[in-house]
């Protein structure tokens, strides 16, 4: 093999190697950008009372957070979130906050509280269904833990992702939940 031929082969190999590395890098960067886009934000944006939040099936507009006295003697105090709910889908929803249910999550001092009871303001009954285009006012009630000191609390809202054709059967499915908004405030009526 002559010196010239060896140099030419080396140069061609080097060129092909550089092109392959470039293509691989472009594919990896593209994939990573897609992962970043799909990833839930670490800190969902802050919303204020009165701002609507899209939760997938419904839109919730938190209106006011208040500390209320116990319903009956001997029971703990309650934290009440008054809100407006609107069904955004084309059919009546029984799983208003998705399935499994993800109602707004309340936390105080980094400690999450158990799920709230949700009642329809119209008749005081539990919320069991929401029809399209019929907005309803509801109250979400949390029982206050005995060791809680009145102060700021945070509410995290989760949105469930809808896919018209999922990857398994190609059917319409409600999939993962992602935190989409956070609201921090001191409840009204707290001493």
């Amino acid at each position: 093999m002559t010196e010239t031929r060896r140099t030419s082969l080396f140069r061609r190999l080097r060129l092909r190697l550089a092109a392959s590395i470039g293509v691989a890098a472009a594919v990896l960067v593209g994939l990573w950008l897609q992962v970043e886009e799909a990833r839930a934000p670490r800190d969902p944006p802050e919303v204020a009372a009165g701002e609507p939040v899209d939760l997938g099936r419904v839109e919730i507009t938190p209106l006011a957070l208040t500390l209320a006295p116990p319903r009956r003697e001997g029971e703990p105090e309650r934290l009440l979130l008054r809100a407006r709910l609107l069904n955004l889908t084309g059919e009546s929803q029984v799983a208003v906050f998705g399935f499994p249910p993800h109602p707004p999550a309340l936390a105080a001092g980094g400690v999450a509280w158990p799920e709230p009871e949700i009642t329809l303001d119209r008749d005081g009954e539990l919320l069991v269904q929401l029809h399209p285009r019929l907005a309803e006012r509801v109250t979400l009630a949390w029982q206050v833990p005995p060791d809680w000191q009145p102060g700021p609390v945070s509410l995290t809202f989760h949105r469930q992702t809808f896919k018209l054709r999922d990857n398994l059967y190609g059917k319409a499915s409600w999939l993962l939940f992602q935190p989409v908004a956070r609201m921090s405030m001191v409840p009204e009526g707290a001493p």
């Binding site: 084309g90 008749d123 269904q129 029809h131 399209p132």
Partner: peptide
């Protein structure tokens, strides 16, 4: 039963 409204939305039997 479901009521299919004029807009095509589907209303289930009222559980209320």
């Amino acid at each position: 039963a479901v009521w299919q409204g004029a807009s095509g939305r589907r209303y289930a039997l009222s559980r209320r």
